[in-house]
Design a binder for these strands. Structure first.
Lengths: 236, 236
DNA sequence: CCTTGTTATTATCAATACAGTTATTACTAT
DNA sequence: ATAGTAATAACTGTATTGATAATAACAAGG
């Protein structure tokens, strides 16, 4: 076999789909690009190049810190995009990651960087069929996406919907202690459909390792809901 | 932003998990490496480097053709592996793909290349929990895997099990026309558990766009089973 | 030609899991 | 206290699943 580094290979990058649930809808962090005209849209997922001898996961952590100032956020790989025409600057292969945080924390990072915005994710299809997704502002204006980032958003929704029932990914949108109503809001935002409360409660408690803390919500006007937390040992 | 190609970036490769179902068990194509001692094992997934201005998918097709002589086989992306120590030669990021073919076709390609072998995939866990998988010969001898390829095999099994019910990926192991019994064999091999026949029939016909052809199996000693095919329009 | 063996296919039934509705409880604010 | 609201529990019917049995189709052998 010839030496791995003796011929030109593509540039490698990571793209981050930073997500939160706010006002009953899934939101994603987008970055405004000055060179949007050549890239197919003014808005793009934040990203960065992977340098040699830096692990892609470390690059993700670096980009998260650089763009939003956030640390220790949950992220996981989505897929890798490497079609030839996807970046007009040349052959750039990009590993897309999903990063999830609670809305309050993410908002702080977005406000601190004036090239960033939190856009509502609009999905034109239901179930796990798949398709593209679009991003829009609070008043419904469409934000044109650069590169193949609309495809990435579509794949992200598909992946999220598929993992919601069988993994604990949905709880990453919530603080360590949360009410079941808050968890239901997350599921409804991601699935884009309303769920019946008792059925949701049962399914959630059956399928996931949750533990009632005994503590209750404070400050509500009416009956306070109990706070639950994910039990790290409860899986097995 | 600085130019994407002005600093050293990792080498990019693809690794192929070529699969088939044979004798009731999942099998994978492995390649013997002369440099196995330094790589952590004598056996590895076939792969190749991604050259600049070549799409990763085209690299997959090239490797498939080079190693096995096969064309037009179904493949899809699994995940990308980029941990720093995974390849002792340097920083190589590898996109792993799952490729699926029927056993007869794959065997032809394996026999034609004497560095290749078809190994039985042994999975030490059930469900979709995840874990590593090992490879062994027909007589049960363990084949030590190079790099992080045991992890890749484990992720492959997890992905396959998760997609089996909700996609048509299972039918890629079968010829265009197949009996329901053959489809059940594929599911049992991948899930590593036996299924009851009538329940499997119902679920398969309910969930997937299958069409009875009216034609029947030939050559069998007893009642011939009807041949089914995937209906490309049946999905919607 | 008829019987037997084996497998494919369909039918039936019980057990379970699931979702929707309604009732009850617990708390806050006035 | 009382009203209002949301959390929680109990109940009910429906759909899904798993096991068993019955029937149908074909080959082989007497």
């Amino acid at each position: 076999m010839t030496d791995a580094f003796s011929y030109p290979h593509p540039a490698l990058a990571v793209d981050l789909v930073m997500l939160c649930v706010q006002g009953g809808a899934l939101h994603v962090v987008l970055m405004q690009r000055a060179d949007g005209a050549e890239m197919g849209g003014d808005w793009a997922l934040p990203g960065g190049f992977v340098h040699r001898d830096t692990a892609p996961e470390d690059t993700v952590a670096r980009v998260l810190a650089e763009k939003t100032g956030l640390h220790g956020i949950h992220f996981e790989q989505l897929a890798t995009y490497g079609a030839l025409g996807r970046d007009p600057r040349g052959h750039v292969v990009s590993i897309a990651y999903i990063a999830i945080a609670e809305a309050e924390a993410l908002s702080v990072g977005v406000v601190a960087n004036d090239t960033l915005t939190l856009a509502r994710v609009h999905v034109g299809w239901s179930g796990e069929a798949g398709g593209v997704a679009t991003a829009q502002t609070a008043d419904g204006t469409l934000l044109p996406l650069a590169f193949d980032h609309a495809d990435i958003l579509g794949d992200m929704v598909k992946r999220l919907r598929g993992k919601l029932d069988y993994t604990t990914i949905g709880f990453e949108f919530l603080p360590p202690r949360f009410t079941l109503r808050a968890a239901q809001d997350v599921h409804e935002a991601i699935l884009n459909q309303s769920l019946t409360k008792p059925a949701f409660r049962r399914k959630l408690l059956d399928r996931h390792p949750l533990r009632a803390t005994g503590a209750r919500e404070t400050g509500g006007a009416y009956r306070p809901a109990e706070l639950y937390e994910v039990d790290p040992e409860g899986g097995q």
